[in-house]
Amino acid sequence: MIVAHGISKAFVGRKAASVVALRNVDLCVDRGTFVSLIGPSGCGKSTLLRILGGLERPSSGTIDMAPGRGADATETVKTAFVFQDHSLFPWLTVLDNVAFGLRMAGVPKAVRRERARMWLARVGLAGFERHYPEELSGGMRQRLSLARAFVTDPDILLMDEPMGSLDAQTRLLVQEDLIRLWEETRKTVLLVTHSIDEALLLGDRVVVMTARPGQVKLDLRIELGRPRTMAITGERAFGELKAKIWEALRDEVERSLELT
């Protein structure tokens, strides 16, 4: 579970003026919920995700990942990050890339290898254990980075445009993989995306952010059934939700273009 309250972030520019990326963001994500985060470019989505993942400090605000369990409990909550550009380690084999998080956590070699193998099989990369990331296609690398995140069995998965660099067809396949993996594991997920379709297809909730400084503009519960398949994109409810999100997003995208 994530309870973020009053998160603001300002970047102090060295030469340029300071930038307020986030202003007063409140976000509450229930355990086992899949939340899609959508907003115009530069509105602070990545920044918010990085703050939640502990990769960046907020200028103000509080984050509680384990409400009711005391202040230190947040530290013990395991998060895993899926990066837009994979950020796989080129010097490690596919297997060692997946096992990296477990290795850092001190999991014995035999155990972590077995778990990594299992996850490679689940994302359809069995047989590529000894390859290096450079030898994989873009879609395979993205599935590899999903495996690297899932294998650590995190409480919370943070994904920053994980499908951003994929072509449309590969993207559909990886989206289906992701739906399946999520429905099997029911992790708490926060996914940043630029695609309304993707946000709707995957999310239990879609959160729309305003142009910079980012704030929550719309928080929409998605009552589409599960298990989901690509077929729902043709349903009427899907189309209506899509129109609603676009309506909210449109002004913000326009505003963000005026900003720059």
């Binding site: 998060t79 990050f81 990066f83 950020s87 380690f89 990296f100 998080g101 850092m104």
Partner: peptide
């Protein structure tokens, strides 16, 4: 820096970040 960040996100800090990343 993205690799450093990835290492950090997956639990490699300080000496281990140096050694493994």
């Amino acid at each position: 820096p993205r690799l450093v960040e990835a290492g950090h996100a997956y639990g490699a800090r300080r000496l281990r970040l140096f050694r493994h990343v």
